[in-house]
């Protein structure tokens, strides 16, 4: 698997503020565990295709992932629950690495330098693609109102589950939900 963080980057602008905001609400968020439930979208909803750059400027189109179960996570560095989700997303992705399963973490508004510094601070270097949606066009097309928001797409590329707010992606029930989608035709 290609490592997505191959280029050394600099730039920490924004991190102090992100940490300030984190400090403001971290206590409230951290005191309790994140939930692990996903709301089923019934009937499944088709989503518009998109093409976004990753950390290294390579483009990723959603249609390239057709045939896989895809977890799309909309996030930003200043969002405290996003910070908690990232390590668990990596854990989940590695656990299901031998399956037709993909994670696309779509950052909002920020740039690669900023995110690279953030990941260093977090000490998590995701092996799944971090994509950039600087104008928030893709999140708008998905109807995302707040961060983080996550979607699970089935192998036909349809949204079948949605989660608004941070989730414990390392919870066994999340893995079970994804495995059930992997098993479905």
């Amino acid at each position: 698997m290609k490592h997505r963080f191959t280029r050394r980057r600099s730039g920490v602008a924004g991190l102090p503020a992100a940490l300030l905001l984190f400090a403001l609400s971290a206590a409230a968020v951290a005191e309790e565990g994140l939930s692990h439930s996903f709301a089923r979208i019934d009937p499944p909803r088709s989503v518009p295709d998109f093409s976004l750059p990753d950390m290294d400027g390579e483009m990723h189109a959603l249609q390239d992932y057709r045939g896989k179960v895809v977890l799309i996570n909309f996030w930003a560095t200043w969002c405290p629950p996003c910070r908690r989700e990232m390590p668990a997303l990596e854990q989940l992705y590695r656990k299901l690495g031998d399956q037709p399963f993909a994670v696309l973490a779509i950052n909002q508004w920020e740039d690669a330098d900023h995110v690279f510094a953030y990941m260093g601070d977090l000490n998590v270097f995701p092996s799944f693609p971090i994509l950039f949606d600087p104008e928030s066009r893709v999140s708008a097309e998905f109807g995302v109102k707040g961060l983080p928001t996550s979607f699970l797409l089935d192998r036909q590329g349809r949204v079948v589950f949605r989660a608004v707010g941070g989730r414990a992606f390392d919870h066994p029930e999340v893995e079970q939900t994804i495995r059930s989608l992997l098993a479905a035709e």
Binding site: S25, S37, P80, A140, K145, G146, G165, R167
Partner: peptide, 18 residues
């Protein structure tokens, strides 16, 4: 278009926002 509390939302079970 981020940081402010969304105007309106319907939270399903387990959903939350800030």
């Amino acid at each position: 278009r981020w940081s402010m509390l969304p105007d309106d939302q319907t939270f399903e079970v387990g959903d939350w926002g800030q």
